[in-house]
Simulated scan of single mutants.
Amino acid sequence: MPRVVVFDEFGGPEVMHLVEEPLAEPTADEVRVRMEAFAVNPLDRMMRSGASPAPVPLPHARLGVEGTGVVDALGPGVTGLRTGDPVLLAAVPDAHARGSYAEYVTVPASRVVGRPAGLGTTEAAAVWVAFSTAYGALVEKAGMRPGDHVLITAASGGVGRAAMQIARQIGAVPIAVTRHSAKRDELLAAGAAAVVATDHEDIARAVGRHTGGTGADIVLDLVRGPGQQDLLKAARPGGTLVAAGFLDPRPTPFPAGPPLTVFSYGSFEHTLDVVVVKRMTAFLDAGVRLGALRPAVDDKVFSLDAVVEAHRHLEKGLHAGKKIVVTVS
């Protein structure tokens, strides 16, 4: 029988274990995907440890919000897909029940999209969450336009790297924020037009220098917490801040300072909307085809049997912000 990763209690990576389950048949408007690989995301760690913002029912909870594979079976009423089609999982809001850490996943057909040509299995497993989140926050929510100066926090992480590439593709100017000056060259190579290292620079002054004194048109805050106040000072009056991350668990003070439009963003806001997903997919396909969009994947790839080690790799920070991938087949 097919194997799936589950956990029965909250805790460290060791709470995960593999079990066998009967192969589920897709019902009306569902597809069954034979998984080839999935990526490990911070949300997976939060769910496993009990820190998820949404309740996770126990026991026998699953994990995984993205991955890639091929269509294995179609339920009644499914059109536009065929068995054997390579696909990405575009939305798994019920990861505790349908998570991608498995050999087979059954989901509504509306929650898969075609795999971009030109991406290998490992890259495809790690592309959707980062790029759909960055695209949704910057393009759909903030209305990013060519020439906009875009300040991006946690820029060395998966979403931050994707945001820099997407800004470049649009014609905007990505300014990366990092806590460590040692990452400057890496971030410039990853697509940043400029880098602000907070261990040596004041954010507002540095952004002013890089924008000719006007400030950032858009701020993508992937961290939140008290540090958001410094980002607000770096934005131009009338600019936009999109809070799309949760890396700092401390309370985020109410935004104060120059007049700004402030949004809180979660990726499911758009990845459950088939019209927006169509735009996301077209943008991603074009970017991959042109060589402008590419996920950064950790050199160490894990097997399904080593999923516990993959989570330990994440917790130790050994991935240096790149996506960790687990292969299934």
Rank of each mutant, 00 (worst) to 15 (best):
G208Q: 06
R168V: 04
R45M: 10
I170R: 14
G287T: 08
G191E: 13
G291P: 01
G291L: 01
G191I: 08
E36Y: 07
E25L: 13
A182D: 10
P2D: 12
F7C: 01
G120D: 13
S49K: 06
F10S: 00
W128N: 13
K323M: 05
H200G: 05
G99H: 01
S267L: 11
A39K: 04
H319P: 08
V276N: 05
P57W: 01
R250S: 14
R82M: 12
T122R: 15
A109V: 14
A51G: 10
D199S: 01
R179T: 15
M164Y: 03
L23I: 09
G75V: 10
A244G: 07
P146S: 12
K300Q: 12
P53K: 05
P258R: 15
I152G: 08
T178C: 06
T214S: 05
E25T: 10
G225E: 08
V5D: 01
T79V: 13
F254A: 11
V107F: 04
T153W: 02
G287Q: 04
F254D: 12
A37C: 04
A172R: 09
R236V: 09
M164I: 06
G257K: 08
R32C: 03
V274D: 11
A192W: 03
R168F: 00
Q228W: 04
S329N: 15
V325H: 03
A204V: 07
V301I: 12
P93Q: 09
A306I: 14
T133M: 06
F263Y: 13
A24V: 12
G77M: 08
V328S: 14
I166L: 05
A190Y: 06
